[in-house]
Simulated scan of single mutants.
Amino acid sequence: MARGTVFKRQGSWGFKAEAGLHPETGKRRQVKRQGFRTKREAEQALAEVQKTVFDGTVVANSNMRLDDFLDEWLAGQKARLRSSTHHSYAIASKRLKQHLGRCKLQALTPLQIEKFYADLLDHGGRTGEGLAPKTVKNTHVVLRKALADAERLGLVQRNAAAAARGPSVTRREMTTWSSDQLKEFTAVAQESRMRNAFTILASTGVRRGEALGLRWGDIDFDSSQIAIVQTVSTVGSKIVVGQPKTAGSRRTVYVHDTTIKALRQQRQLQAEERLAAGPVWESGNDLVFRNVTGGPVNPDQFSKHFNELVEQAEVPRIRLHDLRHTNATLSLKAGVHPKVVSERLGHSSIAITLDLYSHVTPGISRDAAATVESMMFD
C-alpha cells in the first residue's frame, strides 16, 4: 500500500500520498489534497488514492481548470438533453465559472464547494441579494453531474461535489382551488380567447407546455382521448417545440364531455381566427392553441394572462401550474384511484403521486375505513 499521511492546516484537513514513479519521466509522484471538514473525511480520501495507486489507476496530474472542463462538458451534453434542460445547465455552468472557474479541476474540495454554495445563498444574485435555495440546489446538481463525468473519464480522483452538502430545500406549500373556486375562475375566463386551454389544463392535469403542444392530430374525438407527445416551452426568449419532460410523460389521457366540447369550440374559434388573419396566418403547424396569427403561444405570456384572470376572478392566487395540482387533489378527494391519477399526470411511479399529494391521503384513508366497516357491520 502506498505511503500517506493526513494533516490539519488553516482550519481544514488534508492528506498527501506517494503515487509511485511516473511511467515516462521516472520522477516520484505525490498526490496532495486539502479542504476536508474532518480528519475522517481526509483519511477516507487518502484510502481511495492509496487503492488507485495499488490498482495502477492513479489519475495523472492536470492543470485543467473548471471553466475549461465545463465548456467541453456542456457542449457534449447538447445532444443528450432537452433544449430547455440544456439551457438551465448553461445558466448553472455560467454561475459556476464566475465563482470557481479558475480553480484547477483536480484541486476542488468539498469544503470549497460548500463555501461557494453559502456565498450564493448569502449574496449570489445579480444585485447582491441571496439566491433561492432551489436555484443553488440546481447548481449543485449540475456540478455533481459534471464532476461525475470527470471522474468517469479519469480526469479527477474523486467527485468533490458528491461529498459536498447541497443546500436543503423546503418543499413549497401546495396551494389549490376548491371546485367552487375553480368554477368562479372558469366563469371569468369565458371572456378569454384562451378559455379552452384553461379547461384542458383543469380537466386533465396536463402541464402547461403539454397543453400548448397539443395538436389536432393528437386528439381522437371518437374515443375521447388525447395523446401527449410534444411540448411548447421557452428557452431564453425563444419558443421551442420539443419532447415531453420524460419518457413517462408521453401518454394517453382520456377526457369526458366538457373537455371534448371545449376542444370542438376551440376548433371553431381557430377557423374564425384563421379566416380573420388571412395571408399572415402561419399554416406550418397543427397546434390546437395558437396566437392570433397562427404561431405557437408563448408559455410565459400564457401564464401572465392566467395571473390577470385570477385577479379579476378574485379567487385565491395560485400559479398556472397549480391547476395541475388542483386537478390531482380534486380527483383524489373524489375517490379516483391514485394509480389512475398518477398515470394521467405522467408521473413515473405512483409513489411520487402519493408523496406529492400526501395532504389528501389521510382523508382517503378515513373514507376507506368507513366504507370497509359499513360493508362488514352495517
Rank of each mutant, 00 (worst) to 15 (best):
R267E: 10
R267M: 09
R267Y: 11
Q268N: 11
Q268K: 10
Q268I: 15
L269C: 10
L269F: 14
L269Q: 13
Q270C: 08
A271T: 15
E272H: 15
E273F: 11
R274L: 12
R274V: 04
L275M: 10
L275A: 11
A276R: 13
A277W: 03
A277C: 09
A277H: 02
G278C: 08
G278H: 07
G278V: 06
V280F: 08
W281P: 01
W281A: 00
W281H: 05
N285K: 06
N285W: 03
L287E: 00
L287V: 04
L287Y: 00
V288L: 02
V288H: 00
R290D: 01
R290A: 08
N291A: 06
N291T: 04
N291V: 01
V292H: 15
V292G: 12
G294N: 05
G294F: 00
G295M: 05
P296L: 04
P296Q: 06
V297E: 01
V297P: 00
P299M: 04
P299Y: 02
P299V: 02
D300S: 13
Q301W: 10
Q301L: 14
F302Q: 01
S303I: 07
K304Y: 15
K304T: 13
F306I: 07
F306Q: 02
N307T: 14
N307E: 14
N307K: 15
E308G: 13
L309M: 12
V310E: 00
V310P: 00
V310Y: 02
Q312A: 12
A313H: 04
V315T: 11
P316D: 07
R317K: 11
R319W: 04
L320K: 08
H321F: 06
H321T: 10
H321K: 07
H321C: 08
D322K: 04
D322C: 09
D322T: 07
L323F: 05
H325A: 03
H325C: 06
H325G: 04
H325K: 05
T326E: 01
T326S: 03
N327S: 12
A328V: 03
T329V: 09
L330W: 03
L330P: 00
L332W: 01
K333S: 15
K333D: 10
A334F: 06
A334H: 09
A334S: 12
G335E: 07
V336D: 02
V336P: 00
V336T: 07
H337R: 09
P338K: 01
P338G: 05
K339Q: 08
K339P: 04
V340G: 04
V340I: 12
V340K: 01
S342G: 10
S342C: 11
S342Q: 07
S342R: 00
L345H: 01
L345P: 00
G346Y: 02
H347I: 05
S348I: 08
S348R: 13
S349H: 09
S349T: 15
S349I: 06
I350G: 05
A351C: 11
A351G: 13
A351S: 14
T353C: 03
L354A: 14
L354H: 05
D355G: 06
L356T: 13
L356V: 14
Y357L: 05
Y357P: 00
S358A: 12
H359W: 09
V360A: 08
T361F: 13
T361L: 12
